[in-house]
Design a protein around this nucleic acid. Sequence first.
DNA 1: AAATATCCCTATCGGATAAGTAGGATAACA
DNA 2: TGTTATCCTACTTATCCGATAGGGATATTT
Lengths: 149, 149
Amino acid sequence: MKVSHRGLYALRAMVFLAQKHGEGLASVQEIAAAEGIPVKFLESILATLRNARFVTSTRGRLGGYRLYHAPSEILVGDIVRLVDGPLAPFSDARGLSARVASETRHPALFDLLLDVRNAAASILDHTSLADLLERDQKILESRSTREKS
Amino acid sequence: MKVSHRGLYALRAMVFLAQKHGEGLASVQEIAAAEGIPVKFLESILATLRNARFVTSTRGRLGGYRLYHAPSEILVGDIVRLVDGPLAPFSDARGLSARVASETRHPALFDLLLDVRNAAASILDHTSLADLLERDQKILESRSTREKS
DNA sequence: AAATATCCCTATCGGATAAGTAGGATAACA
DNA sequence: TGTTATCCTACTTATCCGATAGGGATATTT
């Protein structure tokens, strides 16, 4: 499994939108500036997210993006899968045929890599954007109290 | 994290050598034929494994490769790290700087990806080649008994 | 209605990395 | 001394990924 730049950008953008959830729209410019993402690149990422109904958009002046669902209903695993493809820990598209070959020859090796994938998926699929926001809060709180002491 | 073709080939070759452990040498040709790996490609992979002292070789006639250590002392995680680099679940070399950036902005996201890496590392670092052989045995046994019944 | 700000669509480019190849030098052994 | 293997260096090719270019569609403001 691997989270590409594109995937990280998508996650960051989604977290940003989760923070603004309920406060109207955010433009590509705004998100790009806040998160340090190339504008045109972010545009194409948002197109992907829009097609999958993770975000919705309105155009024209004062247009922008917002989350389609509540932050608690969007799982990190789904975002990663959408942008970076399935979470398989072996590389590529021919993976299926390579899998069958190595499965028959070395089934335990195949199973092991499957365990890795399942462990990763389990973590990513049990964490929503709302969870991330909550944890960010706690981390920031503990940091500020540490500074005060 | 991601296991490349090269990494899978390396793992398969090592499992093959583990099966033959104590029975002398195996040539590149032999391994390549058994595992379905391009000969020249496997050569370069074995060079990497040799430099890291995972295997040892003797050349000339009747030459070949064998494991340097016992199968129980070689961890799958070490092989993957050697061939495919560190197990970080985000992509690239600039990962460090990108990490710091996203860590300060969205620390929880960073922590989550770290959890994924640790989970994967934990699985791969607790499994040796000997473990794989043992599991292969059990799997094959259960298959044959299932066929008999 | 015009100007402007925004999303939207298609196409492409450059760089990096990975997969695989070629050919010959070197060493061991019959 | 010839054969068979590893070893070494370099090259080719393919694929993917990050990023960019340029314009078209749409909605709001003036």
